[in-house]
Each structure stands twice: as structure tokens, then as C-alpha cells.
């Protein structure tokens, strides 16, 4: 079985200088891979390269399958006059000749996808009026409509309450079990431990592999730099924690 995504010595950037280099990893079908890294570490940049928006400056990148994407939250414009169904329908664009508009069949597909993420009732609701978790699920539904084999989620758990986060995680498990490859950028190291592999980025690739072996102190220190602290724990084992990410340098232009 060949990989859905494979990067070899990949370097990407916005100008001539790469902001992310030395990336070597593979995403197999049915895998959930956590992408860890500090703010500005290059998670979003990697996703943009996978989406074909940034060309590799060096190395190779093969993407064998359609990419669906759940972008970092504030980027989708919350005041845009579209319904949840409209957003899901955007997933049908690529599959249609350019002069055709979505028809009944496409609407059915989009509604079914919204049903799978548990939002059938809210299909007509304005996208910006949904809760954060519901918006993420609408975007997952859009990826389902696209029949994406690869799903990229950029910090989907940021700002979600525990119940919504749990629900989204269950959904991701389900997508992976259908043989899709899932890449999830996150700040939550503990959450990533439950997934199949982790990719640690800090301007370059720090490590890649199964979480149990990969997420060592050294790797975490190299990934997060000074933002990592050791918490004394009651049961004798030490726990690692990250200082909360500061978002001041994280305004993505829409």
C-alpha cells in the first residue's frame, strides 16, 4: 500500500527563503497524524504546501488523492452570507463541469454529509451563527462531499468546549477507519498521544513517528523551545505542560 502523502527533504516558504525545511514524512491511509509545533512553527505552511498553494522550494512532495481542508478558524469569514448547506455544497465544485450549477443530486450529497456530522437540522443556518464545534463539523462535511481521501485540520480543537472536542475526535476516528488519511495540527500534546503518529515541526522537522517513542523530553524541548515546563505530579511521574500559546503573532490574513 502506497502512502497518501509523502514528503522527502521538503522545504516551503513564501518568498525565496524557506520558513519550513527538512520535512520527511508519510501519511498512510487510515492514519491520524498529529502535527505539533509552536505558533509560527510552520504547521499552516505545511498544509498550504499540501493544498498546492505553495510550491516546494526544495525536495519532493507527492499528494496521492484529493485534499479536504478545515482551515484555521478565523480565516473562514464568519460574516459571509452563506448557510451550512452552501458551505457543504462548495465541495461539489471540482466534480462538475465549469458551466454546471449544483443540482438535486449534489444537494442530496451535501445534506447526507451534513447528516453524517450530525448537523442535518442546521443545514439552513447561517454559517457564522453556528458554534465553533458546529462550524468545524460543517467544514468536515465539506471534505466528505469532496470525497477527500486526505483531510487536513488546522488547529480544529482551539476554542472548543470539551463536549464538542470529544464529538469532533470521534468523527475523526470514524473518517480514519474508512481509510482516509487525517492530518491534525494541534497544540495539545496529550491529545496527540492517542493518534497513530506525530510530526513535530519547529521551522524544520524535529521528529516523526509513533507518539509513544517520539514524544520524548528532548523532542518536545526542541519543538517548543522555552515554552515547555515540567509539572511536579502526585504519583511520582513528571508531567510535561506547554505554556498557553500566545496568539498575538498569529493573525492570518483572510
Amino acid at each position: 500500500m502506497s502512502a497518501l502523502v509523502e514528503a522527502r527533504g521538503l522545504a516551503v516558504g513564501y518568498g525565496a527563503a524557506p520558513v519550513l525545511g527538512d520535512v520527511d514524512f508519510a501519511l498512510e491511509a487510515g492514519e491520524r497524524v498529529g502535527v505539533l509545533g509552536p505558533n509560527g512553527g510552520g504547521k499552516t505552511t505545511l498544509f498550504r504546501a499540501l493544498l498546492g498553494e505553495l510550491r516546494p522550494l526544495a525536495g519532493e512532495l507527492t499528494v496521492a488523492g484529493r485534499c479536504g481542508t478545515v482551515p484555521q478558524t478565523e480565516r473562514s469569514r464568519l460574516d459571509f452570507p452563506v448557510s451550512a448547506l452552501d458551505v457543504a455544497l462548495m465541495g461539489t465544485i471540482a466534480g462538475r463541469p465549469w458551466w454546471r450549477r449544483p443540482g438535486r443530486a449534489e444537494r442530496r450529497t451535501a445534506r447526507a454529509a451534513l447528516g453524517r456530522v450530525g448537523l442535518e437540522q442546521l443545514a439552513e443556518r447561517t454559517f457564522g451563527e453556528l458554534s465553533g464545534g458546529q462550524r468545524q463539523r460543517v467544514l468536515v462535511a465539506r471534505a466528505l462531499v469532496q470525497e477527500a481521501r486526505i483531510v487536513l485540520l488546522d488547529e480544529p480543537f482551539t476554542g472548543l468546549d470539551a463536549a464538542s472536542a470529544e464529538r469532533l475526535e470521534a468523527l475523526l476516528d470514524e473518517l480514519a477507519s474508512e481509510g482516509r488519511g487525517i492530518l491534525i495540527a494541534t497544540h495539545d500534546v496529550d491529545q496527540a498521544r492517542a493518534w497513530d503518529r506525530v510530526l513535530c515541526l519547529n521551522r524544520r522537522q524535529i521528529a516523526f513517528g509513533p507518539p509513544a517513542e517520539t514524544l520524548t523530553r528532548e523532542v518536545l524541548a526542541a519543538t517548543y523551545g522555552g515554552a515547555i515546563v515540567t509539572l511536579p505530579a502526585e504519583d511520582g511521574r513528571e508531567a510535561l505542560a506547554l505554556l498557553p500559546p500566545h496568539h498575538c503573532d498569529h493573525e492570518h490574513s483572510a
Partner: peptide
């Protein structure tokens, strides 16, 4: 629909 996808979310539009 293409204008809609781009206006809604420029960065994902190409993938769509």
C-alpha cells in the same frame, strides 16, 4: 459557486 468558494475562504478555494 466559484466566486462563493473564493470569497468565503480564499485559502481553501484552490483545493475545492
Amino acid at each position: 459557486w466559484r466566486l462563493l468558494a473564493v470569497g468565503f475562504d480564499r485559502l481553501s478555494a484552490r483545493a475545492l
